[in-house]
Each structure stands twice: as C-alpha cells, then as structure tokens.
Design a binder for these strands. Structure first.
Lengths: 235, 235
DNA sequence: TTCCAAAAAAATCTCGAGATTTTCTTGACG
DNA sequence: CGTCAAGAAAATCTCGAGATTTTTTTGGAA
C-alpha cells in the first residue's frame, strides 16, 4: 500500500481502512465508530467522515443515519451471489483477455505469477501474509487486463475486493493447507499463455468456486461448534 | 427524489448532487467546487466533503488531491465500453429475470411500464421531463428485479446511472423524435410477460444499442459543427 | 426477578476558522 | 509579441467545538 506524500489525509486513511477491512482487521458487521478510528488512525473526525463514505460506495461498508458506519455484514447467501457474479464476469473477461491479449500482457501476467509463486502464503504468526494478498490481487487483476473494457475490469476488481472480506471466515487457515492453491494459479497462468480459452475459463471457474466452497464449509462447521458451545437447548 | 426528514444533511445533498449530475445539470468534466456548491445547495463545506466522495465511489465523479472534485468526463470510447458492459450484464439479468420471475414481479413490471407510458417525455421548456427519467429508471430496474442476485442487479443499476450522464449529449432532443421509444419499452414489457426469453433479450439489446448509436451520431455531428465554427484552419 | 422510565454517557452531525496549496493576475524581461 | 516570474486571489485541506441524537446505565415499581 504505497501511501505517496502527494496524497490528502483522507485518501491515505481511506486506503488504510480499505486494506484493513479486506484483510479482516475489521470484523464484518462491526461498527466503524468515528471516535475510535480517530484514535486508531490518528486523524480528525472530518478526515474520517470524508474517507468512510468512499467505503460505502465500494460496497465495503454500510451507513445508517444517526448510527454511523459499519463493515458490510457477511452471509452465505451473499457469498454465493458474489461468487456467481464473479464467475459470470471474470470468465467473460478472461475469455476476451486471452483472445485479445498482447505480448506485453503475457509478460505482465508471467511476472505477476512469478511474484505470487515466490511470496510465502503464511507469515510468522500463522497469519496470512499481507504480501501474498497483494500479489494474489495483482495476479487476478493482470489476468483480466488483456481485455480492453475498463468498465468491466473495474467491476471485476470491485467484486473481488468485496469477496476478500469473506476470507477471514477461515480464521484457522487449515482449509488452505489441504489445497494446492499454487498449482491452481500455475494452471491458470499456463492455459492463458497457451491461449487455451476453454482451459483457462475452466481453471478460473474452479479456482473461484473452490475458494467459496471451502469458505462455506468452514463457516458451516464453525456455526455447529458455536451451537454446541452454547449448549444443546439454550438460544 | 423523496428526501425524508430522517436523513442526514450529507445524504440529502448526495442525492441532489447525484440527480443533478445524472440529469445533466452539472456538465460532464466540469469542476465541483466546494465553495460554489456550498452556496448552491446551502450546506457547509464539511457536509459537501462528505457527500462528494460517494459520487466518486459510484463512478459519477473523480477526485484529484489539491484539485478537488469533477464530474466524470465523457468520451465516445467510454460510452462504447459502458454500452458493451450494459448489454452483457443486462441481457444476462433479464434472461434470469424472465425465467425465474414471480407473479409479483410481473405485476410490478406492468405497473412500472404503465407509469412510464403515461408520463410525457418532454416538459414545458423542451427539456426532458424529470418524471420521465425517474419512471424510465424504475422500469429498467424492475425489469431485472426478477433475478435474485442482488450483486449483479446493483452493478446493472450502477452502469445504467453512469450511462445516463451521456444523455445530455443530445442537447437538442431531435434524436428522440425520430424514434418510437415508447414502442421499444412496450415490446420489452410484452416479451417479458410472455416469457419469451430470446425475444426480450433481443428487444433489450436493441434498445440499449440504439440509444448509444443515436448519442454517438449526435456527438459526431456536433464535433463537426464545432470544427466549422472555429474555421477551417485554426486550432 | 422482570420490566419500564429517567438520567447519564457517548456517539454522531454540523459548522466555521485557520493553514496550505493551487490558480489567476499583473508586470517585467528577452 | 511571446515567455516567464512574482504577487494576489481563491480554493482546498484540516481541525476542533458545540448541538442533536442514540445508546447505556441506573433506579424504582409491579
């Protein structure tokens, strides 16, 4: 997150807030109190009231009059909708991208994949490495950048970021260990370079859907545990 | 534009700004100076600095540090991209909508169309009637509401609003007179109620593309006029 | 114990003033 | 005549204080 000096305070705070929501440092549904954020981010209320509305526009936060801002709430239904929308749009984009992509695009994709393949998934404290998240986002963005339609690319990015919020459901990252996510990216990259349109569409669809199914399983499992923790008959 | 009393000042100003941009009362590319808007809308700078970022998130305005806000600039290329994106997404949604829509959806669609058919297109001063714009937006929204995927519906709405900005290219509304826009809506509505999936997809595609082509023609014609006005050899 | 109401605490909402930066004007120089 | 620089004007950016609303706490009654 390169916070250039030629940036307004609000712009900087917005980017930090966005990153913190996407990376799960603000729990879904939790309130974003201006007073609390003022202290945490070292900014005035005015600056925060300028940064927060942008999160609303990006679908990462909600707002209710007299009740302030909240991180978007998560639900299995919404995740399924997001996934369906992503598969629909990203497969279209990747098809265009692989069909029309230039040599420069090929190079960029290879570079992005190389970077992603070398960054470790986990950091020191068993947390997902932030550098990996950045590289992952970049890989998926570049993959679709062969398509010239900026509108659709922006929408794809927006949906992907909204979906990132759900990654924090997998608090215990066991779901990742049983999955060769690196191989999935390698397949996508290779099929794209080979200009194998059906192959890349298939690989990308599986990639997106697999993530969602693992998250939904993880969510269901935790729901059951919570029920047992609260006892068999108490609300 | 129902501005309820249980609304913050920023929310109200945001809606007014959004309507004014979409309906062409702020020219594309024009600056949105806080000082000027303060007077025009009767709000403090803080309120405006809270409302303007939401326009950025919605793709209706841009922002540059130390240079303030601007209405999005328009260009033939961007309009073509917007149109392509709209056709892609709206045809998908209308297919789902017509396939899965309930009886309630049918009723809502008929109601929306009835309303649209009765509102006059032009107001007193040869300007496009604002009530028509509202009814038109509602008709297209309801048409897609049979589809259950909220994410995609929201995206479609967002794209449609971004495209509305281009309507003001047709300053002289001659382009509308040679076109039976009411018949187009009628066809879309009928095909939808008949559950004629290919028919409604075809009608909706033509409807969207026709609007764009007329706008592009109008734009091209005006560009040439401007060149002639400035003389044949001066910049 | 449970429920309700009033008071207290905390948060949001709105506003205007001061510091910083950009933009426009003016005037001199090549 | 065109170009460039210094000064003036205007706009943005940031901040904290006061008014209003919501939330929490407290105390009492059924």
């Amino acid at each position: 997150m390169a916070t250039t000096s030629s940036m307004t305070r609000a712009e900087e705070i917005y980017q930090r807030l966005r990153a913190d929501i996407i990376n799960g440092r603000h729990e879904p549904g939790s309130r974003l109190r201006v007073e609390a954020l003022k202290e945490k981010y070292g900014a005035s209320s005015g600056v925060l009231r300028e940064a927060l509305p942008r999160l609303v526009g990006q679908g990462l936060a909600t707002f209710a009059p007299q009740q302030g801002f909240r991180v978007v709430t998560v639900s299995p239904e919404r995740l399924e909708e997001l996934t369906e929308a992503r598969v629909f749009i990203e497969t279209h984009l990747v098809r265009e991208s692989v069909t029309a992509g230039t040599i420069e695009w090929e190079s960029d994709l290879l570079a992005a994949h190389h970077h992603l393949a070398r960054v470790p998934l986990f950091g020191d404290a068993d947390e997902i490495n932030e550098g990996w998240l950045t590289a992952h986002a970049r890989f998926h963005r570049v993959l679709l950048e062969g398509c010239s339609n900026r509108q659709l690319r922006d929408i794809a990015t927006q949906l992907r970021e909204a979906a990132e919020v759900y990654r924090c459901w997998a608090r215990t990252p066991t779901e990742h260990s049983n999955r060769d996510i690196a191989a999935e990216h390698k397949t996508i990259c290779e099929r794209a370079i080979e200009r194998d349109v059906p192959g890349v569409v298939e690989a990308l669809s599986r990639h997106i859907n697999t993530t969602t199914h693992l998250l939904l399983n993880d969510y269901g499992r935790r729901e059951e545990e919570n029920k047992q923790d609260r006892g068999p008959s108490s609300p």
